[in-house]
Structure formats: structure tokens, C-alpha cells
Nucleic acid binder design. Structure first.
Lengths: 211, 211
DNA sequence: TATATATCGATAAAAAAATAGCGATATTGA
DNA sequence: TCAATATCGCTATTTTTTTATCGATATATA
């Protein structure tokens, strides 16, 4: 088993490599080189080589990596082979969109159920049941769930977050546009579109100010 | 005008500060210190101070920053005051969800219209017209649009991307889960959920392997 | 008025990441 | 069989980012 200790930057690039390999892999050649990946993705050669070296040792001089092996190794490292169970809180527009997206399993994420204050008339979306909030703790006790997805309005996000942590959740994927206060050891991954937009906007500003 | 040259990391943190200030600001005190922000967001004091210093000079010893002023300065720097026009390609589930999200304007993004191969029966979603693809270039010629949002299936993403660039788009917000090939000077911001999931999953793995 | 305190800003040090260069190795083709 | 070449992996250097330390300043209080 390769070392678990990769830098955050590397970790963010690994899914990109995997994505690239899968997308271009079907009819392509059997082998792929770190150089080839770096050129296709506009990255530095050495960055790619170092990233790959940290999760695989199957690279061979002159040949490169066997594409399928590399894909498998990446998936294994990223945990796509053993799905993590998750629950979602907030069955609004966004919540339902996520529930009905069937691509998460491919990334090792399995949404068991959704919770909402007002479960509404629909009993399930995307094959996942929508349950009232008071059933949340009971389910977490019965099943070992570690990931919580928050898609409630900002005002309720912190309360939901606290509830999730009390129920044993260790990592939170936060789609609400507020900052969450959590104790040590709990990871909050903010899906913040504002960050992406800031990068876009800044790029344009620079483009126009330098011209 | 403060310098435009901030690091990418700083740029990613600025929207977080802004978000925090807005969210906690309504009934709060008039002044806010860099120290206060750093504690609330679990960041290093100096990081926050340095980030703020790069976009504002209104911080005063002992007092801190005037909250409203700081918010305004952040918004100005991030370009939230002058909305960038954008067009969206791919009026599927995700595309429509984005169209009907009315929060983008707050971030300085104004979606003018959506395009799709098959515009469907609905003429508009969220007040934005859905037009056939062949109208795209004409609109871009008439109006100066710089941001393109791609929400088409992966197979079509590259073709759409090429079309957008031909039409004069300078920055692309890519929701398709494929890597896009673009010429120098064009920014592609990938909204890749797999990256977020990788960070979550790795956090859990580390948690369980060290125990 | 004078002193204590909280906070900013600047400089310096440490850590991390990106980059560059070199040798080793396996494949290809003469 | 042997040379040429493409590619990996290692080490060193540079750059960037983060962290630590110190002095300066404005407010509050005695």
C-alpha cells in the first residue's frame, strides 16, 4: 500500500488525472507517460511524475504507466472502490438535484437517505427516501455513517451541522453559503461557488488591466 | 486602487472573509479585527492580516476595520459591484438549476441567456431565455460577453468550448466532468465535485488509519 | 496626563511547493 | 549485439507560502 501522506495540492490533482485517463482511455494506447499527461493537462512534467510516484510504483522508463493499472491505482487510493455512506439534510431544489444525480457512487459516495423538516409529499427522490428530521439520529446510530451533506438554507446550516456531529458524522460537505463552526477533528468541505467565481472574475480583470 | 496582484491562495480566501462578514454583520459591532476573523474562521492571524492588507489600507491599530467599509472593499476587489455578463450552454437539469438560482448576481455574475441544441418547449427558465445553438455567435457579437458556463454532457463539452472561444469568450466555468483543451490566455475553472469528494474521503481514511 | 492594552504593519525565519537538472533503465532499430 | 532515445526517479535549487517576532499606534482608564 502506498503512503497515505500526500499533500493537499497533490490530492486535488489526482482526481483530475483519473478523470483525464478515463475520458481519453477507451480507444487509446495501452501505455501512458507522465510526460503525456503533463502536456495534455498543461502541467509541469515533474509535478505529474511526483504525484504519480506517490501513489504508484508501476511506472517504467521508456514505457510509462499501463493505463488501466494506473486508473485502478488512482481509484483505489481515492477510495472509489469502497463507497462511503452519507446522509443528506435539506431536500430542497439543490438537495433533490444531488439526490437524483447517480454519478456519486462512481466516486465512492453512497447517499443513504435525505432528511428535511418538511419531508413533503414525495416519499423518495432518486430512489432515496426523504425522512423527517427526528429520524436522523436514530438512523446514524443504527448505521455507521461518516459523511453528512448540508443543503439547507444558510440560517439553519449551523444547527444542522451541530446535529450531524452529535450523531457521529466526521466529515461535512457544506453547500450552504455560510461558515460552519466545528470542533477539532471534523472536516468541513465547503462547496463554495463564490470562490470559483472570484478566480474567474480576477482572471478577466487582469486580462483587461494589462492590456 | 490596491494592487491587483494577490496570490491564488489569498484570492480563494477573500470570498470566505466576505461571506463571514456579511453573514455575521447585521446586528454585530461596527468594527472587526483581523484577529477576530482569524479566530472565527480557524485561520492564522497573520494570514488574515496579510490578505486584508493586500486589498485594504483602512485597518487601524486597536480599532480594527470598519465592517461595512471592509465588506465594500472586498466586494469591489472581487468585482461584485460590476456584474460580468455570461452565457450558459446546456439547458439540462443542472443548467436549469443554475439558471433559476438568483444568487449569482450578488457575486457579480449575470447570466444573459442559455443555449441548447434542443431548446425544448419552455421558452425561458428563471427569466432567462433558452435559445437554439445557432444564435450563440450572433449574440456574442452583439453583446460583449466574456464568461461562458458549460453544463452539457461531457461528450459535447470540448466542441462547445471551442465554439465559445471562437465567439470571444475569455473565461469558462466548466461543470462538465472532462478536461478542456484551450489556447493560452483562456481560463478554465472546473467545478469538479470529484475534487471535493477526494478531500473528504481522504480525511476519513486518515482518521481511521491513525487510530 | 500618563500608562496599559489591543491591534496593525513590517521584517525575518521556516516550511512547503514548484521547478530544474542529472543519471539510470528499458525499448527500439541498425 | 550495440547505440540512440524516451522516460522514470532522485537530488538540488528556486520560488512561494506560511508562520513567528517585534515595534508602532490609537483607544481606554486611572
Amino acid at each position: 500500500m502506498p503512503s497515505r501522506c500526500v499533500s493537499k495540492q497533490t490530492l486535488q490533482r489526482l482526481p483530475v488525472y483519473l478523470n483525464f485517463l478515463k475520458q481519453s482511455g477507451d480507444g487509446g494506447p495501452k501505455h501512458i507517460s507522465a510526460t503525456g499527461i503533463s502536456q495534455a493537462l498543461n502541467l509541469n512534467q515533474v509535478v505529474v511524475r511526483k504525484d504519480l510516484a506517490s501513489i504508484s510504483t508501476s511506472g517504467r522508463p521508456k514505457v510509462g504507466y499501463v493505463r488501466q493499472d494506473l486508473i485502478r491505482e488512482l481509484e483505489e487510493f481515492l477510495g472509489y472502490d469502497n463507497a462511503d455512506d452519507a446522509i443528506l439534510v435539506g431536500a430542497g431544489k439543490l438537495g433533490k438535484a444531488l439526490l437524483s444525480y447517480d454519478g456519486f457512487l462512481q466516486y465512492g459516495l453512497n447517499i443513504l437517505a435525505a432528511f428535511d423538516i418538511d419531508p413533503g409529499p414525495e416519499e423518495e427522490v432518486g430512489g432515496k427516501p426523504i425522512l423527517p428530521m427526528d429520524k436522523l439520529e436514530a438512523l446514524c446510530e443504527r448505521v455507521k455513517v461518516h459523511i453528512g451533506i448540508i443543503t439547507v438554507p444558510g440560517d439553519y446550516a449551523q444547527a444542522v451541522c451541530d446535529l450531524l456531529i452529535r450523531s457521529g458524522i466526521l466529515a461535512i460537505w457544506n453547500f450552504a453559503n455560510v461558515h460552519l463552526e466545528v470542533p477539532e477533528g471534523i472536516l468541513v468541505q465547503n462547496e463554495n461557488m463564490a470562490v470559483s467565481l472570484a478566480l474567474l472574475s480576477n482572471h478577466l480583470k487582469e486580462k483587461f488591466s494589462t492590456k
